[in-house]
Design a protein around this nucleic acid. Structure first.
Ligand SMILES: [Mn+2]
Ligand SMILES: [Mn+2]
Ligand SMILES: [Zn+2]
Ligand SMILES: [Zn+2]
Lengths: 136, 136
DNA sequence: CTGTGCATGGGAACCATTCTCACTTGCAGG
DNA sequence: CCTGCAAGTGAGAATGGTTCCCATGCACAG
């Protein structure tokens, strides 16, 4: 049984304010800046619950950190995420769905699930003279 | 300049002995069982080097742990992995490559990378009504 | 209003991975 | 063969995201 608490309301508010994937720690900072006081553990707990309920999407960046976002689409979809600012584009990917289904079937696998995410640097971050932090 | 050491030889040997994706710690255990003494840090370092050279493929399981495997194909590809026995099929996925490139470009993103893995239950495991032997 | 049991939060615990650094060793060059 | 030295090693410490613990707080049904 879910209770409505000051903390959960604050988290929902912050989630509604951003279009981008954010880590639990970033959300925690955003809450603090917005004047709300919410414990980090509570942020993690809340995101876990929201994720289980399908209210937020979760993905892991290259560093293995979990990123959260309230998505528009409730149905299955994929993302193109800016690895610098977190800007996100929701993608329909019928091609990928078909690929997954075909490949699974042709190899005799059942209950095939797939993961597919795109990470890049968005135009704005690129223009901002963003340094490519990769390779070297 | 790469030097051939007892440790690296042992790791290569163990990698050649398995078809399945394994974690650094599992590899470390396998080395110990095979009678070789190799530090865990060395296993990590070796896997990192092999991964950079494209000699092993890396993927992250649901728990965020890195799994390694020596793949047949040297070129970029994806995997269909049995979530029960770990059996792995290497996949060519031109469709996915094109999708990633097109989507990235049409949204003005650069340096677009993608992840795409399929997890399912293979025919044998399905027939055996098998119990999950992995994870833990 | 009140009790009760879900919720909170600060800090400790967890745990895979990386780092440190003194020590070892492969191997090119002599 | 030697030898010097840069690359490699490993035990343990550090890191850092995430979860756990537990005393205290508080939402809300009755
Ligand atoms: Mn899909
Ligand atoms: Mn690909
Ligand atoms: Zn960006
Ligand atoms: Zn199987």
């Amino acid at each position: 049984m879910q209770r409505m608490t000051r903390q959960r309301a604050a988290v929902s508010e912050v989630l509604a304010d951003t279009e981008d994937f954010r880590s639990a720690q970033q959300l925690h900072d955003m809450l603090r800046e917005a004047g709300h006081s919410v414990g980090l553990a509570t942020v993690y707990r809340t995101m876990q619950t929201l994720a289980e309920n399908g209210d937020v999407d979760v993905l892991r960046n290259a560093e293995g950190e979990s990123l959260f976002r309230r998505c528009r689409k409730q149905v299955h979809h994929h993302h193109l995420v800016c690895r610098i600012c977190g800007r996100t584009v929701e993608l329909d990917a019928g091609v990928v769905e078909h690929w997954a289904a075909d490949v699974g079937q042709s190899h005799g696998f059942v209950d095939v699930e797939h993961t597919a995410e795109l990470f890049g640097t968005c135009a704005e971050c690129m223009a901002a003279g963003a340094v490519d932090t990769r390779d070297a």
